[in-house]
């Protein structure tokens, strides 16, 4: 059996190599580098220019980054608008009658920010609560003169009972600018369909009263009539106001 182990000979060879007698060399070099510098002043100046160059370069880099970032943001904004235009929501043009008996269609509200809510006047708790929230949001946004005005709209999902008079009486309980809209069953259905609103009347009791189960979202529509966002019941008054503010700002910055 042959084992391959380093032979004692190689060891002895390694240890036989003479150590470099270095210390003298080291000392010599050290003296060279720590010796008195003739251009100390120019080195300081160099540091200053180096710092300036770094700063200018850094600022330039940040500028470029900022430019790319804002371009990207605007691009995302444009893409979102394009996507929203493709979303089959709120693309139609509803034709309804307001609570004063005037015929209104969606185009009448172009140029205004619109908050849209679907409900019915016999609604036990959710609609009044949501309409109160919506009114509070409009009132909060009204306080900021820099922001454009928001037009709140209420569309009934129960046109059989909610005629012009009933809607007129109902909207008085909420924001003074709230416009109530009703129409024929077909018109109301058409308006609801446009916003994918589900509405289904429940069984009637002895006195003919019934409850309509329906979608309880608040829709935000921009001045171009484009659906931008929606808010469910979990969203507080503050959250909705903040969201609308941001939507308004992003549009203003786009112009």
């Amino acid at each position: 059996v042959v084992l391959h182990t380093p032979s004692p000979l190689s060891y002895s060879f390694k240890s036989a190599v003479p150590r470099p007698t270095g210390p003298a060399h080291f000392i010599h070099r050290c003296f060279l580098t720590t010796g008195p510098k003739p251009g100390a002043k120019s080195a300081k100046l160099q540091l200053r220019t180096r710092l300036a160059v770094t700063l200018v370069f850094g600022a330039g880099l940040m500028g470029v980054w900022w430019y790319v970032y804002s371009e990207k943001q605007q691009m995302a904004q444009r893409q979102r608008i394009e996507q929203l235009k493709k979303v089959a929501l709120g693309q139609g043009n509803f034709c309804l009658t307001d609570h004063t008996g005037r015929r209104r269609n969606k185009r009448d509200f172009l140029g205004e920010w619109v908050l849209l809510y679907f409900g019915f006047t016999h609604c036990p708790d959710i609609c009044p609560e949501e309409l109160e929230k919506l009114s509070a949001v409009v009132a909060a946004l009204d306080k900021d003169p820099a922001l454009p005005r928001v037009q709140p709209l209420f569309v009934t999902v129960d046109p059989v009972r909610d005629d012009v008079a009933a809607v007129g009486k109902y909207v008085k309980d909420f924001h003074p600018r709230l416009i109530g809209l009703t129409g024929t069953e077909e018109e109301v259905k058409e308006a609801g369909r446009d916003y994918r609103v589900y509405a289904s009347a429940g069984p009637k009791d002895e006195d003919g009263d019934y409850i309509v189960d329906h979608t309880i979202l608040i829709y935000l529509v921009n001045p171009d009539g484009l659906f931008l966002d929606y808010y469910n019941r979990m969203k507080s008054e503050e959250q909705i106001s903040e969201s609308i503010r941001n939507h308004m700002k992003s549009v203003l910055s786009c112009v």
């Binding site: 016999h122 036990p124 708790d125 009791d205 002895e206 006195d207 009263d209 019934y210 409850i211």
Partner: peptide, 12 residues
């Protein structure tokens, strides 16, 4: 409350 609301709130 209207009768319909009474039923509704009981379920609620």
């Amino acid at each position: 409350c209207p009768a319909q609301w009474v039923k509704y709130f009981a379920k609620r």
